[in-house]
Structures are given as structure tokens and as C-alpha cells.
Amino acid sequence: MAYRQSFYQFLMTLRNPDSNEDIAAFANNAQFDSTFPRHEQDYEKLSEYLEENAAYLPSMTIFDEAYQEYKDKMQY
């Protein structure tokens, strides 16, 4: 089976401290979240974590958009 990067690894490729884009801000903030599930790939587990712990994420729609990009790149 081919290696598939975690959502966190993918998200880190979207960081951009100079951007005003929502997904870049999400990635920038997730970088400093020491409890982020860094090896997780599962949507439900990630969503539950973010809903309960990520005060830095103003809308779950941002996560949904980022996760869709992740799925497209990983070709689920």
C-alpha cells in the first residue's frame, strides 16, 4: 500500500503567514496546536477534535474545504 500523508502534513503545505486566506490561517494556527492529531487521516476524528478543541478555527466550513483539497490530492 502506498504511503498517504496525514491531514496535518498536508495542511502544513498550506501555511502562509502573509496570506489572508481562511485555509492558510487555519494551517498557520494548527502549526502551533500541540495536541492536533498529527497522524490522523479520518474526517470524523479530525472534525470531532477541531469542534472540541480548535478555538482558532472560526468555521468548520474552512476545515471541510481543506479536507476536500486533501482528499483530492490523496485521490480517495
Rank of each mutant, 00 (worst) to 15 (best):
L50E: 00
F36A: 07
A54R: 02
E40C: 10
I62Y: 05
A55M: 12
S47P: 01
L57Q: 12
A55H: 13
A55C: 08
D64E: 12
S59L: 09
Y56L: 09
E48G: 05
S47W: 13
I62W: 08
D64C: 06
E48T: 14
N53T: 10
E52Y: 00
A55V: 14
Y67S: 00
F63P: 00
A54T: 13
L57A: 10
M60A: 11
D64K: 13
I62G: 01
E40L: 09
M60K: 15
L50G: 05
A55F: 11
Y49G: 03
L46W: 03
S59P: 07
E44G: 04
K45P: 05
L57V: 10
P37V: 13
D42Q: 02
D42P: 04
K45W: 01
Y49V: 06
F63E: 06
N53M: 09
Y67P: 04
Y43D: 07
Q41T: 09
T61M: 06
Q41E: 13
S59W: 03
S59H: 14
S47Y: 15
A66T: 05
Q68P: 04
I62L: 08
T61A: 06
E65P: 04
Y43I: 01
E52C: 11
Y49L: 09
A54H: 06
E44C: 06
E65F: 07
